[in-house]
Design a protein around this nucleic acid. Structure first.
Lengths: 185, 185
DNA sequence: GCCGAGTGGAACATCGATGTTCCATAACGG
DNA sequence: CCGTTATGGAACATCGATGTTCCACTCGGC
C-alpha cells in the first residue's frame, strides 16, 4: 500500500462514508447520488473507483475493518460469555449504517472475504461455544443461530429508532435486554 | 372488480408468485427474469402489468392479503397473549418468500396501504398490550419493539435455513423458543 | 506566490431495462 | 369444430446509469 497524499486519503474516505450512508438507505442509489452526497463530482468518484464494483469492494473492506476493530474492543475472552456477547452487541451497535448495509444487502458486494471466514466471526462462534460449556448460554441455541440472532436484534434496534423515533440508547437497551433473556439458559 | 377469465386469473397468479419468489432473492431482478421464471413471455407480463410499479403494487396487495389471512388463522384473541403470538409466528413463518420480501425490501413497493395502518398490524399491537395487562408479556418491551422483534426472528429463521441448511421445522422451533424466552415477563 | 496535484463539469459512447407495437399462432370454451 | 381469447416473439424507441475523455480551474504545500 503506497501512502496516499493526505488530500487523496480524505477524499477517498468522504466517498466511502457517503456511499455507506446512502446505500444503507437505498442499495440502488446511483454513483451520481453518491458523488453528490460525498460533496464531490461524479468524475472524481470514477477516478478513485473506476467501476461500481470497485467502490463496493472498498466499502466491504471498510466495514470489515470496523467489525474487526469492534470485535477486539469487546474483549470477548473476558468474563462470562453471555456478558461478552452483550459487550459485543454494544460495540456493533455503534457501526450504524455499516451494520444495516451488511445485514440486508448481501447482494451488494460479493462479501467473499467475509461470511463465515472472518476472524471476528470465528471468535464470535467460539465465544458462544464457550458460553455453552460454562453454562451461561442456552445450549438449545446453536452457534449460528445466536450469531444471526445478534445481527437481527441489532438491525431491529436501528429500525426501531428510525420508525418510532426512539432515542438510540433506549433502542440499545431494549436490544440488550432482549438478547440477555433470549440467550439465558 | 370484473371477474377475470379462468385463464387470465391463472396467468396472473403465476406471474405474481414468480415475482415474489424472484424478487425475494434479488430485488433488482428484471421483468424479463420474472417472465422467464413465471414461464411466460415478457410481453405477457406487460399485458397484465403495464409498468413495473403495477406489478409491485399487485405483489404488495397479494402479500398483504396473505398476512391478513394468516393473522385471522392465528386467532389472536384466544388464550394467553404470549401463546397467541407464538401461533401468529407459526402462521407468518409459512408466508416464506413473501415474508422476506416485506422485511428487507420496503423500497420495493410503496407499501403505502400497509405499515402501521393495516388491520393485522393493529390486531397484533392490541394483542401485545393485552399481554402486558394480563402479565404474559414482559412490560419492558414496547408493542412496536415486540412487533419488530417477531419480524426479525422470522426473517432470521428463514435466513438460518438458507445458510446452514437447517430444516424448516428446526428453524421454526428455534424461532419460537427464542421468542418465548424473549417476551416472557 | 507558484506549480503541480487534485478537482469539476461538459460531452460523448455504451449498455441493459423498460415500455410499445404488430402479427402469427396456440388453446380455450361453447 | 370454430371463433374468441390469450400468448410469444421480434422489432423498435426511450431512458437512466455507467464509464471515458478532455480541459479549465483551484487549492494545498513548499
Amino acid at each position: 500500500m503506497a501512502a496516499e497524499s493526505g488530500t487523496r486519503a480524505r477524499t477517498r474516505r468522504a466517498i466511502v462514508d457517503a456511499a455507506v450512508a446512502l446505500l444503507a438507505g437505498d442499495p440502488t442509489a446511483s454513483l451520481g447520488d453518491v458523488a453528490t452526497a460525498a460533496g464531490v463530482g461524479r468524475t472524481t468518484v470514477h477516478r478513485y473507483f473506476p467501476e461500481r464494483s470497485d467502490l463496493l469492494a472498498a466499502i466491504s473492506a471498510d466495514v470489515l475493518d470496523k467489525v474487526e476493530a469492534a470485535t477486539e474492543r469487546a474483549r470477548l475472552d473476558d468474563g462470562p460469555a453471555a456478558k461478552a456477547l452483550e459487550r459485543l452487541c454494544q460495540e456493533y451497535f455503534e457501526l450504524g449504517d455499516g451494520l444495516t448495509l451488511m445485514f440486508d444487502t448481501p447482494q451488494l458486494a460479493d462479501w467473499s472475504d467475509w461470511d463465515e471466514e472472518t476472524p471476528a466471526d470465528l471468535h464470535f462462534l467460539r465465544t458462544v461455544r464457550r458460553g455453552h460449556a460454562e453454562g451461561s448460554i442456552d445450549p438449545e441455541l446453536h452457534e449460528e443461530w445466536v450469531r444471526n440472532l445478534v445481527w437481527a436484534l441489532l438491525y431491529t434496534a436501528w429500525e426501531h429508532t428510525r420508525t418510532t423515533g426512539t432515542p438510540k440508547h433506549s433502542a440499545l437497551t431494549l436490544c440488550l435486554h432482549t438478547l440477555r433473556k433470549a440467550i439465558a439458559p
